[in-house]
């Protein structure tokens, strides 16, 4: 099996590569200290297995999994126990190993990948998508979502959000209690929000419709924020309001 290692720490990459060398059928074809470089590599080449560090500064492991186009099995390697539950929401994450790596646990995780790879039915069932599984999504989509902030997954109730603003590579989620800056796009979060309550009113803004205080010309007032409404979105906004 051809594999790659993604970890920003060289000692971790050397140790992972060493354990791979102890498995006769594993061939480490490339190592990356940055997940973005790995994505560029995977745009042109495919591998059988990815060893992935979760906590990396510029683009973390969960961002990587969400960006991955293909269904390559992933074994996460991290110091953080906290990510385990959320990591397994992604069907192609088949193993989760804590640092420092343990030989036996490493071998078991690789064996699990072998079994999945050798069993087409199991593989198609278990490695079906890099999106979170439908069952996991259904249980969370009605009331809240989790966002990745400083390597923690923070729960945000939908109905506490009043506006979401695009800020370059980030989005600013404003809630009743506090604001959150998250590395994501407006498009990604729009897909997660309940469509009956949220509307994109401008290329940089999504608003919670029930939080609107008033509307004037091409802007809406939400809390104390004046949010611009684009000309194309204004008719859609007006349709969604309960006008007298």
């Amino acid at each position: 099996m051809e594999c790659i290692i993604i970890d920003d720490e060289l000692t971790a990459r050397v140790i992972t590569a060493r354990l791979c060398a102890q498995e006769s059928d594993l061939d480490v074809v490339e190592q990356f200290n940055d997940a973005i470089d790995a994505i560029k590599y995977l745009n042109n080449k495919s591998v059988d297995l990815i060893f992935l560090d979760i906590h990396m500064p510029t683009f973390n492991g969960i961002d990587f999994v969400q960006t991955l186009k293909f269904k390559t099995p992933i074994i996460c390697i991290t110091s953080d126990r906290d990510f385990a539950v959320d990591a397994f929401q992604y069907d192609n994450i088949v193993g989760y190993l804590l640092k420092p790596l343990d030989r036996n646990k490493f071998a078991k995780a690789v064996e699990k990948v072998r079994q999945l790879t050798n069993s087409p039915t199991a593989a198609s069932e278990q490695i079906s998508s890099s999106e979170p599984s439908a069952s996991a999504s259904n249980t969370t989509h009605d009331t809240h979502l989790y966002v990745n902030i400083d390597r923690r997954l923070v729960k945000i109730e939908f109905d506490t959000i009043y506006v979401i603003e695009a800020k370059g590579d980030y989005i600013l989620i404003k809630t009743e209690e506090k604001n959150y800056t998250v590395h994501s796009t407006l498009k990604k979060i729009e897909d997660k929000l309940p469509k009956d309550r949220f509307l994109k009113v401008h290329r940089s803004y999504i608003i919670h419709l029930l939080k609107i205080v008033d509307i004037e010309d091409n802007s809406v007032l939400i809390k104390r924020d004046v949010i611009p409404v684009s000309r194309t979105n204004k008719p859609i906004l007006m349709q969604r309001l309960n006008l007298l």
Partner: peptide, 17 residues
């Protein structure tokens, strides 16, 4: 301090090694 925390995260692995 947040950036410092990221470096601590990297360095601490060497402690356990």
């Amino acid at each position: 301090y947040h950036e410092a925390a990221q470096l601590v995260h990297k360095i601490k692995h060497k402690f356990i090694i």
